[in-house]
């Protein structure tokens, strides 16, 4: 069975006929060719596939593309503002929060959501706890935690500055 799925993907309306069983992650990667979102497991445990659906972090392997019909979907490709990196992206680079890069898009999308939800400056304990759905085999998390902390401090500062 095929059905038509339409969504806003990184600010652009896209539409395609896909098999009903198509997962959101496969719609993003294969139908739309945005390969920054990764697949690291088959049990929804690793977080390599995290994207934002209507402003919330979602594991895109847990959701059918059809369920995202009409939604606003943001992937790692849509995070930067042109050439200007999102503060979380920049913080991952500045703090060496990535090695092979495979978990990185999911980590970054999780981190953005985490900072948005907690609003204020994050502490290490909260960050580690919030990362429970994201596995990284390379970095040992040390620098990912540092990067998220730095980004959240910086974003808290930016918020104060604009208030």
């Amino acid at each position: 069975m095929m059905s038509k799925v339409t969504m806003r993907l990184n600010g652009k309306t896209v539409s395609a006929d896909v098999e009903d069983r198509t997962l959101l992650v496969h719609f993003i990667r294969e139908t739309q060719g945005l390969t920054g979102t990764h697949v690291g497991c088959d049990t929804s445990q690793c977080g390599a596939c995290v994207v934002h659906v209507d402003g919330k972090a979602v594991k895109s392997c847990t959701m059918l593309a059809a369920q995202a019909d009409g939604s606003d979907v943001l992937t790692v490709e849509g995070l930067a503002n042109g050439d200007e990196l999102h503060p979380v992206q920049a913080a991952f680079r500045e703090n060496h929060g990535l090695q092979c890069g495979f978990c990185t898009p999911g980590m970054i999308m999780t981190a953005v959501d985490m900072i948005e939800r907690h609003g204020a400056k994050l502490d290490e304990k909260t960050i580690r706890h919030e990362l429970e759905g994201n596995i990284c085999r390379c970095t040992g998390y040390h620098n990912i935690v540092k990067a998220i902390k730095a980004a959240s401090d910086q974003m808290a500062g930016m918020k104060t500055a604009t208030e």
Binding site: G36, T75, V76, F92, R93, L98, F102, T104, P105
Partner: peptide, 11 residues
């Protein structure tokens, strides 16, 4: 890093 943090890695 730039390609990995912007989703442009090629695996």
């Amino acid at each position: 890093d730039k390609r990995f943090i912007t989703g442009k890695g090629r695996y």
